[in-house]
Computed example of a mutant assay.
Amino acid sequence: MGCQSCAVGGCGSRARTTDTDEVAVATKTAGCSSGGCSSGGCNKLNSFDWLSDMLPSNAPNTRDGYTVVEVKFKGGRKDYFRNVHNLDLTTGDFVVCEMTSGYHLGAVSMQGDLVRLQLKRKHIQINDDTKVIQRVATQRDLEKHEQAILRDLPSLYRAREIVRDLKLQMKLSDVEFQSDNTKATFYYSSEERVDFRELIKMLASEFKVRVEMRQISLRQEAGRIGGLGSCGRELCCSTWLTDFKNITTSAARYQNLSLNPAKLSGQCGRLKCCLNYELDTYVDALRDIPTVDKPLETQKGRAFLQKTDIFRKIMWFGYSSESTWHPLPIARVLEIVALNKQGVVPESFDVLTPVGEKEALSAAALNADLTQLDKKYASQNRSSSSRRKKKKR
């Protein structure tokens, strides 16, 4: 049995000793130890309890200082439960949690004072109506939970066939059966409003369970299914990202990215969430870059803006009569613009450099690192070609 937070089923097992009144029984509890495993695929919304060794002075007399525990279920879904029975829990333990109808099995993902800070950040109120943890999962509970998970994939395929027969404009992405096999939650996405009353009747008669339909966005769907992004890493929405902010094409324009939908779209078909990661840095850097509405006038000709290096504060201009680009610092560009407004046409870019200041920037100096790389790889190619000739001889 895997950790049930991802599609990886090869998690390592660990032994857990359960003390009873008569005998201490050692059970082999499959799953992840310390909330993760060595398979590399069970890091869905993992969290590190960095307050595990700190006990607040005003905390109640419990083992971890706070009676509320965070439990993670399939697909990275998390919820909070009260530990009213003062169970000795460890991160990664499977527990039986109270639900509206029946019970469900999940893994402890966080406990202690860090849960209190999470509840405060998310503005969640804990009261008597909050569900409780009934007990630590036994081997029988784990077997029933594994049987419920084995029903997910066949039920998803059968439900998609029923949706096609009813010709509903919706996409079923995942199914989650409750551990007691009394309820099934179907996650779907749709661009328009769907009347699925007939679908619920057919699903309930097909699987003999209570059916709940839950609509999710395309970003949430990608997070539940998972996958690899164009960067080669797992999707952010399936590993750590929970808050999906609005992303517009202006984020790509600020970063001088090509407005190509195929490159800017993620697995969900929407704009990539990572477009917002460095947006603030680019916006701050662009504040010092002047807006050049028209070409610069010099006696040599009209110089047009070709590109801008916002981090090195350099703007490249080129004459229409030649293919060479001239790098200019921002201060020099502002000086030329001010002279052009006064009707003064400088002789060239270099004349503006006062005595005692640094000399004008040259393209060769700015591209020195590229020149070194070209020389390096050129020498390697020559040596490899000479070795091939020797082998032929």
Rank of each mutant, 00 (worst) to 15 (best):
G2A: 07
T18I: 13
D19L: 04
V23E: 14
A26K: 07
T27P: 09
K28T: 07
G31N: 06
S39D: 15
V68E: 03
R77N: 00
R82N: 04
H85A: 11
S101A: 11
G102K: 02
Q118S: 12
I126T: 04
Q134R: 13
D141Y: 06
A148H: 06
A148Y: 05
I149D: 02
V163H: 00
E176C: 13
E176H: 08
Q178L: 06
E191T: 14
L199E: 05
L203N: 01
L203R: 01
S205R: 09
V211G: 02
Q215R: 08
Q215C: 15
S217Q: 08
R219V: 06
Q220A: 09
I225Q: 07
W240R: 00
I247F: 13
R253E: 08
Y254A: 09
Q255N: 11
L257P: 04
L259R: 07
C268Q: 11
C268P: 14
Y277K: 06
D293G: 10
A303H: 01
K307A: 12
T308V: 11
K313L: 06
I314G: 01
G318H: 07
S320I: 00
P327A: 09
L334I: 03
L334N: 04
E335I: 00
A364P: 13
A365W: 11
N367T: 12
D369N: 07
D374L: 14
Q380T: 15
R382D: 15
S383W: 13
R387A: 14
R387K: 12
K391P: 10
